[in-house]
Amino acid sequence: VTVHVDGVEYDFDNPEEALKFAKKVAEDKNGTYEVHGNQIRVT
């Protein structure tokens, strides 16, 4: 699973970890996250 944040890609073997990371980053920057299959984009 790849999490995209501001043009940087973070790869996770564990989808739950990826989702947790995306949620935290989105909260920290008052943004949102979208899941597209095995890609998660934080905006």
Score class of each variant (00 low, 15 high):
36 H>N: 13
39 Q>R: 09
1 V>C: 14
17 E>P: 03
7 G>E: 05
7 G>S: 06
22 A>H: 00
29 K>F: 15
25 V>A: 12
7 G>A: 05
15 P>Q: 13
13 D>H: 09
42 V>L: 05
35 V>C: 12
38 N>K: 06
42 V>W: 03
14 N>F: 06
43 T>N: 12
11 D>S: 15
24 K>S: 10
21 F>R: 00
40 I>D: 01
15 P>H: 14
35 V>E: 04
13 D>M: 09
17 E>D: 13
19 L>T: 05
33 Y>K: 01
9 E>I: 15
36 H>E: 13
26 A>S: 08
8 V>Q: 11
43 T>H: 14
29 K>M: 15
27 E>F: 13
7 G>H: 05
20 K>A: 14
13 D>V: 10
22 A>Q: 00
28 D>G: 10
7 G>Q: 05
14 N>S: 12
42 V>R: 01
38 N>S: 09
24 K>L: 09
41 R>V: 15
2 T>D: 01
26 A>G: 03
38 N>L: 07
38 N>W: 05
21 F>M: 03
3 V>I: 03
34 E>W: 11
12 F>V: 01
35 V>L: 08
7 G>T: 04
4 H>L: 14
38 N>Y: 05
39 Q>D: 10
12 F>M: 02
10 Y>L: 04
38 N>A: 06
10 Y>F: 11
16 E>K: 08
16 E>Y: 10
43 T>V: 15
14 N>D: 14
19 L>H: 05
25 V>P: 00
16 E>N: 08
29 K>A: 10
37 G>I: 04
1 V>P: 04
26 A>R: 03
4 H>A: 07
5 V>F: 09
9 E>F: 11
1 V>Y: 15
11 D>P: 14
21 F>V: 01
20 K>V: 10
16 E>R: 07
15 P>N: 08
18 A>V: 00
1 V>I: 12
39 Q>E: 12
24 K>A: 11
40 I>L: 04
4 H>E: 09
14 N>Y: 06
34 E>G: 04
27 E>H: 13
18 A>G: 09
9 E>R: 14
2 T>G: 03
14 N>P: 01
9 E>P: 10
32 T>M: 09
21 F>P: 00
13 D>W: 09
20 K>Q: 12
10 Y>Q: 03
35 V>M: 09
4 H>M: 12
43 T>G: 07
2 T>F: 06
17 E>G: 04
32 T>G: 08
18 A>Y: 01
25 V>Y: 08
17 E>L: 08
30 N>Q: 10
9 E>D: 10
18 A>E: 00
38 N>R: 08
22 A>S: 03
15 P>C: 14
22 A>C: 06
32 T>V: 10
21 F>S: 00
37 G>H: 05
12 F>S: 00
31 G>K: 04
17 E>Y: 05
15 P>I: 15
38 N>T: 09
5 V>M: 06
36 H>P: 01
12 F>T: 00
6 D>E: 08
3 V>M: 02
14 N>G: 08
12 F>W: 03
41 R>K: 13
6 D>I: 03
8 V>Y: 10
28 D>S: 13
36 H>F: 14
5 V>D: 04
35 V>K: 06
26 A>M: 04
34 E>I: 13
30 N>I: 04
5 V>A: 05
34 E>L: 09
23 K>S: 07
4 H>S: 10
30 N>K: 11
11 D>M: 15
42 V>F: 05
32 T>N: 09
9 E>Q: 14
10 Y>K: 03
4 H>G: 03
40 I>H: 01
5 V>G: 01
41 R>H: 15
6 D>R: 05
1 V>F: 15
22 A>N: 01
